[in-house]
Computed example of a mutant assay.
Amino acid sequence: MRTIQTVIKPQGQQLGPLTMHQPLPANGVDQLDPFLLLHHHGPTRFPARNSGLPFGPHPHRGFETVTFIYQGDVQHRDSSGFASTIETGGIQWMTTGSGLVHSESSSEAFKETGGMVELIQLWTNLPGRLKMVKPHYVGLQKNDIPAVTLADGKGTVAVTSGVWNGVAGPVQPVYDVELANVSLLAGGSFTRRIEASRTVLFYLLNGAIVVNGQKISGRSLVIFENDGDEIDVRATDESRILLGSAQPINEPVVSHGPFVMNTEQEIRQAISDYQSGRMGHLS
């Protein structure tokens, strides 16, 4: 089994109407190559006649963003012409590539009625050879994402990308990133084999588990060494886990706000391209 290096317990902070927890990056952990950033928003109740999510138009270049909608909905628009409203249980996977401007808001129906919101926003890096690919967006509803029932019948796995027990996820990222959401009942368990060379992303949203012999509870990012290929999980309470893996890119990471490149010159070019409108516009 892989050795647990450390466990990060993020502190909450307010981001507009949302409470946001950021386990990545954290003190002493800039990234889990190629995973750059993880924001866990909510759960937060929005009242009726609310103003929706606070993510207005902003640019990106050089990486991929993945949004998991656990509660509520997210209305996506971007300067490449992609648009969709994804509801509870769905995902949005955007390859920012050479650059675009996008916004994530709530639907008019949600703003009128209100309700619970819970999201995870994840950034995954791209190698230099792929940073300037054409932007692309995939929005999938819950029914578009295959669910695998665990062998003990006490859990399910919603497979976003990669393969789980022979079931392939619907998203084929431009860089090999596997992601799945695991929901466990108390007493549920699974063992997942991940090649020792791959970086593991293991985030416990809620609940209580024993992973590779260590008790973990609440919001927790578990960081593993690359010294084994097995992750063993047993739930002591109803729990949800975002589990992923990817081969490290092992390239320099230079970031400036919404741009993630390999060099300072590339960052300056990204800023210039955005300011001059070469990433498009979104009103």
Rank of each mutant, 00 (worst) to 15 (best):
I4Q: 05
V7N: 04
I8Y: 11
I8G: 04
P10H: 12
G12V: 11
L18H: 04
M20Y: 10
A26K: 13
N27Y: 08
L32P: 00
D33T: 07
F35S: 08
F35Y: 14
T44Y: 06
F55M: 09
Y70R: 15
Q71T: 09
S79C: 10
S80W: 03
I86M: 07
E87G: 13
Q92C: 13
L100V: 06
S107H: 00
F110E: 02
K111D: 12
G114S: 09
V117N: 03
V117A: 04
N125A: 09
L126E: 04
G128N: 08
L130P: 03
K131H: 05
K134V: 11
Q141T: 01
Q141G: 15
D144R: 05
I145S: 01
G155L: 04
T156S: 09
V157P: 04
V159N: 07
V163K: 13
V167G: 02
A180L: 13
S183F: 13
R192M: 09
E195N: 05
E195T: 06
T199D: 04
L205I: 07
N206M: 11
G213A: 08
K215L: 12
R219Y: 09
S220M: 04
D227H: 06
T236D: 12
E238D: 14
E238K: 14
E251I: 02
S255L: 03
G257T: 01
P258C: 01
F259W: 00
F259D: 08
E266P: 11
Q269A: 14
I271Y: 00
G280N: 08
H281L: 14
